[in-house]
């Protein structure tokens, strides 16, 4: 199974995703913002990073940028519920910055796990 880092400022979402992923047998780490996420990744690089876009401190796009800069092979799924701009806008940007998958919140379990499985390949 794989090590997945969940980055989201919303605790409920982190908890829910952790449970969803752990149920699939993955090992899950959590970070509440981008800075912590990068720090966490440095300590223990994950197989997959699932990150929200809109977050306080360091937001998702920055997180993606930061991760990609340091770890070019990092696999990222970007999630967004939208905000000042439509979610798709951010997500497209995230994609541009290196996120392999972009999903719009709320994501159905099937879709979520499908994306995870796809990115992890053998590990999924």
């Amino acid at each position: 199974m794989a090590h997945i880092l969940i980055v989201d400022d919303d605790t409920q979402i982190r908890d829910m995703l952790r449970q969803m992923l752990e149920r699939e047998g993955h090992q899950v780490s959590e970070a509440a913002d981008g800075g912590k996420a990068i720090k966490c990744y440095r300590e223990s690089p994950a197989d997959l990073v699932i990150t929200d876009i809109l977050m306080p401190e360091k937001d998702g796009l920055e997180t993606i940028l930061g991760l990609k800069r340091e770890f070019s092979n990092v696999k990222i799924i970007a999630l967004s519920g939208g905000g000042q701009v439509a979610p798709k806008n951010y997500l497209l940007m995230a994609q541009k910055l290196g996120a392999q998958r972009i999903l719009t919140k709320p994501v159905e379990r099937k879709e979520m796990l499908g994306a995870v499985r796809e990115l992890l390949g053998d590990k999924g």
Binding site: D10, Q12, I13, D15, M16, L17, Q19, M20, R23, L54, L79, S80, G81, G82, G83, Q84, P87, T104, K105, P106, V107, E108, R109, M112
Partner: peptide
């Protein structure tokens, strides 16, 4: 709507996620 959409989606996400998992 634009303002609340993000939060609302964030709220919906765990509702849906937990529901699905619990259904299992």
């Amino acid at each position: 709507a634009g303002g609340i959409a993000h939060d609302f989606n964030n709220i919906l996400f765990p509702i849906m996620g937990y529901s699905e998992m619990t259904m299992d």
